Structure formats: C-alpha cells, structure tokens
Simulated scan of single mutants.
Amino acid sequence: MSHSCPKHLSHLLVSPGGAVDLDDIDPREVGFLGDEDKVRARLVEDAEAIDRLQDRLYAEGKRALLVVLQGTDTSGKDGTIRGVFNATGPLGVTVTAFKRPSEEELAHDFLWRVHMAAPRRGTIGIFNRSHYEDVLVGRVRNLAPKEAIEDRYRAINDFERLLTDNGTVVLKFMLHISKAEQAERLQERLDEPEKHWKFNAGDLEDRKLWGAFKKAYETALSRCSTDHAPWHIVPADRKWARNAIVAAIVRDTLETMDPRYPKMPWKPSDFTIT
C-alpha cells in the first residue's frame, strides 16, 4: 500500500464503510490550508515535484498511479487537471474523459472500457469521470435495475483491488461544490462568449436532480472508500484550494511510493563518445 495524505488534509479521507453526509462538509471552508498566497506558492512547488517524481516513476516502469476525479457538473475536473498536472511531462501521463458509453462499450460489462483505460506501469493515469458514473448516473437515472447497481459497488471494489494488487496505486477525489457555486459557474458559461462551448443544456436537467445525485454520491463514497482505494472529499468552491489539496495529496503519495531510477548494468566510464 502506498497511499499517503498530509496530516492537515487527513480529515478529507472517507473512512472505509463510514457514513457520509455531504451537507456536513462546507465546500467553501478551506481555513485549514492557511494563508492563500503561501498555498498558491506551494501548489507551484507541488506541481514541479510531481513532474520530477513522474519522471522517476516512468524510468522505474514497475508501478502506476491512477487519479480518479469525480464531481457534479462544473466542479472543476478539467481545471484540476490543468492546475495540478500541466507541469508534468506528457510522455508519462494519460487523461481519459468518460462520456456516454458507445454501442461497443455497452455490449460489454460496465468496467470493460474502464479497465482498457487503466494506466500502464510507469505512468500516471487521470480519469475525468470514471466507472463511478455507473453507480451515480446509473442510479439516479434508473439506467439499470437496483439489483445491478448494488452489485456494481462490489464489482468496483474488486476491480480497484485488482489494480492495486498489480502495482497501481488508486487515488480518488470527489470535488465537492455547493449548489450556489454551481449556479454561478453555469451562469458564467452563458455570460462569457469564450465559455459558451462548455455549456450543456443537459446540465440543467441534472441540476434539478441535485438531491438525488447527492444521495448517490454519499452511497458511493461510503461503499467504495477502502484501505486499498480511499476516497477524498475535496472542498471545491475555491478553485485554488481545490487544486492545492489534490496536488499535495498526489505529491505525498508519489513520495511515499518513492520510485527509483533503475541501476544500469554499466558505468559511464565504460564508454567514450567520439
């Protein structure tokens, strides 16, 4: 097990099997981070450290890191990827955005497309949405029988255990925003021409189901936070704080993994460049 979380962020971890009530977690409360300017500066340092650690992970080629980002519409999954991983060399990072399943994907079990996107050894994989859509949207929209949804929680835990048993460390972040903050961000997409492309009228339909999605998230967080693949609930109303929290945990986890450059079977002195 190679998960790690800075002590000042440990309260964001969901205890395995513990009850979750998102109403008890203020998406704007980030006082535990300290001074904003110092936090922003640390974010830059963390992003640079992640780049260095990823280079070692790639060279080692024995393990992988999977970062799962889940959250309601406008919670900042894209922004988190930019803010945390933009400094990371692209060679060893893959980003997969899971959208509505294709006919081919629907012809297989719900984890088929997800397993295909799991990061190869030596790389960091980032899921923008993930296999949890099948117990979130699937549950709220009644896209599968209740019995099938219940079975999926177990299947997800088994799948994540399979990944970890084979050298992939799994970090999961639920980007928690308030309904008021979502309203502001949706309005920005209507007011600012350069953000029109981000607006999806379907988001308004999901917004009407805010309460149902909240319950679905609470169930998934409770059922699927495990020792081998823990969930973190990230207060995400403040974008800088959201990015800083994710970066700190990713860096801490990579440092705990401590990837090493491989020892070569030769010495530099064995060669002469002419």
Rank of each mutant, 00 (worst) to 15 (best):
A107G: 10
H108W: 02
H108Y: 13
H108F: 05
D109K: 05
D109V: 03
W112S: 12
R113S: 04
H115N: 15
H115I: 10
H115A: 14
A117Y: 07
R120L: 11
R120D: 13
R121E: 14
G122R: 01
T123R: 14
I124F: 00
I124V: 05
G125D: 06
G125Y: 03
G125K: 00
I126M: 00
F127C: 00
F127S: 02
S130F: 06
S130N: 03
S130C: 04
H131E: 14
Y132T: 00
G138R: 05
G138C: 12
G138E: 13
V140R: 08
L143T: 09
A144N: 06
P145H: 09
E150R: 10
R152I: 10
R152Y: 06
R154H: 13
R154G: 12
I156K: 01
N157F: 08
D158V: 13
F159I: 04
F159D: 08
E160K: 02
R161S: 14
L162H: 11
L162C: 11
N166G: 11
T168F: 05
V170G: 01
V170Y: 02
K172V: 03
M174Y: 15
L175N: 03
H176S: 08
H176G: 06
S178D: 05
A183T: 12
A183D: 15
L186K: 13
L186C: 10
E188C: 07
E188V: 07
R189Y: 06
D191E: 15
D191V: 11
E192S: 13
P193D: 08
P193C: 05
P193A: 09
P193I: 13
N200F: 02
A201S: 11
A201T: 09
D203V: 05
D203P: 03
L204W: 07
E205I: 12
D206R: 09
D206W: 00
L209A: 14
L209R: 15
G211T: 12
